[in-house]
Structure formats: C-alpha cells, structure tokens
C-alpha cells in the first residue's frame, strides 16, 4: 500500500519546513472556506495552480485525485440549484434551477478544489513522519501525536494482514454477494483482524518497554527555519487574506453588521424600558 503519493519530489515546496507548512495551510484553508463570492475562489484556485506548477507534481495522479474528490460535489450540482431560492435560470419539468443556486454550487466547487490542491501541494509534499514531528513542535498533545504516528505506522502492516486473509478466503472459493453468508464472512474477517491487531499491539508495547521507551522518539535531524520558509509563509497568508479583502469586503461588512445589531439591541432595550 503506497500512501505518500506526492511526498517524493525535489521542488522548493517539498523542502519547506513542515512547521511553517502547517502554520500557512491552516489559516489559508479557513480563509478559502469562508469565501462567499465567485471571484475570490477563482483567484485562490489560480494561486493553487501556480503552486502545483512550482512543486512539479505528477499531474496524472493529481487529476485522478481531484476526480474522486469531486464526486461529492457532483451530487450538490444535481440537487442544490433546484432548492435554492432566487431568480429562475432554467426549468426541467416542475423543477426550477435558480441563478443564485447555480452560483452557490459553482462557488462551493471552486473553493473545494482550491482547498484540496493547496493541501496536496503543501502538506502532501511532506512525509507523514516529519509532519507528526512538526505537530509536536506546534504543541499538540503528545499522546495525540504518538497515536497518530503509531496509527500511520501500522496501517500497512494491518493491510498486509488483511490481504493475506483475503487470499485465504478467495482460495476457498468465496464470492461476495448480497447474502448473510457474505456478511458473516466479512464480519469474522474483521473480527480476526481486530484480534490480531490486539495481540500485535501487546507485543509492540512490550518491545518498546524493553528498549526503554519514555514516551518520545529521539531524533537526529532537527528542523531548521530558513529565510525561504518565513518568506513563503508570510507571502501565502498575505495572498489568501488579501483575496478576501479585495473580492469579498468581509472586513468592511463585519463592523457594519455589529453596528446594525447594536442599534437593534439598543432599540429593543429602549422600547422595553
């Protein structure tokens, strides 16, 4: 099972400090998720595409990944335009698709793809081990990071166990169909996997104790913050938040909203008294 498809590579994005990667990606994806117009997500998508080119990722793999992600979005295209209030755009039988609904789905599609590309380009280009190392530096609970690391480490091991058992049932002429026998077989297979994982984890823990495990992994290579890391981080955050500022004027709307709410509250209070 090959999990880290995009981590191999030699571009400057692959070499960025994983701590900076997290600190850049998290505010940026939330900024994109909060966008409401069409223009801002298009601009964000263009920025992400430029990053894809800079990181020299395998485009074929990237497109396959984007297709799977867009399956959920496809369902939104079928349903959302017809249940959104607004001006009619076209009609199929009794169903009326509204202009507002179509724009809304378009905005979701653009935002979703921009976020996915950004996650692949920035986080997908680091190995999971260095990402978990970065999470320790970012003060996440140690237990959670250890859990994540062990979880990741044993996926391939448990997958091998599963493949072995799957072969064993196939040799015995098992053909999955919609019947009770199939469900029972799968349930026992999963049960056996759980038992094997339970026994294996006990052996792992004992082995760790034998080697003097003290709740952390000593590491030789430490992170080194370079100028390019800081420059990249600051540039990305400025880009995504200025997209919001330019296209969305959320920043100007917030004070207006607060002002209106206060006026309404004051009005109510004066009427009550």
């Amino acid at each position: 099972m090959h999990l880290e498809e995009f981590a191999e590579g030699n571009s400057f994005i692959h070499k960025l400090d994983p701590r900076v990667k997290f600190l850049t990606v998290i505010p940026s994806v939330f900024a994109i998720a909060a966008m409401k117009t069409i223009a801002a997500p298009i601009a964000a998508l263009i920025v992400c595409l430029i990053l894809v080119i800079l990181s020299r990722l395998d485009l074929k793999k990237l497109i396959i990944r984007l297709i799977t992600v867009n399956v959920f979005i496809f369902f939104l295209w079928i349903f959302l335009p017809f249940s959104y209030p607004g001006e009619a755009f076209f009609q199929i039988g009794n169903l009326i698709a509204t202009k507002e609904g179509l724009l809304h789905v378009l905005s979701i599609t653009l935002k979703s793809n921009a976020i996915v590309l950004l996650t692949i380009v920035i986080l997908g280009t680091s190995e999971v081990f260095s990402l978990s190392h970065a999470l320790i530096h970012l003060k996440l609970p140690r237990k959670l990071v250890l859990l994540f690391f062990f979880f990741y480490r044993y996926i391939t091991v448990m997958h091998d166990e599963y493949v072995k058992m799957k072969k064993a049932i196939l040799i015995r002429c098992f053909k999955p169909k919609s019947n009770l026998h199939t469900y029972k077989t799968y349930a026992y297979l999963i049960g056996m996997l759980i038992i094997r994982s339970f026994e294996r984890s006990q052996r792992i823990y004992n082995a760790m104790l034998c080697r003097g495990f003290k709740n952390n992994f000593p590491i030789i290579s430490h992170f080194e913050l370079k100028k390019i890391d800081i420059a990249f981080g600051i540039a990305m955050i400025i880009i995504f938040f200025s997209l919001i500022a330019v296209f969305e004027n959320t920043f100007t709307q917030v004070p207006i909203w607060i002002y209106q709410k206060t006026l309404a509250l004051v009005g109510q209070a004066s009427r009550l008294s």
Partner: peptide
C-alpha cells in the same frame, strides 16, 4: 496508545473493504 493506534489502523483498513 499502541493498542488504540493499531486498532485504529485496523478500522482504517476495514473501511477500505
């Protein structure tokens, strides 16, 4: 932690079935 982690990997693999 090792127990919960390996069990989580098992459920991750099971969710691929």
């Amino acid at each position: 932690i090792p127990g919960v982690a390996v069990l989580s990997s098992t459920f991750f693999v099971a969710s691929l079935i």
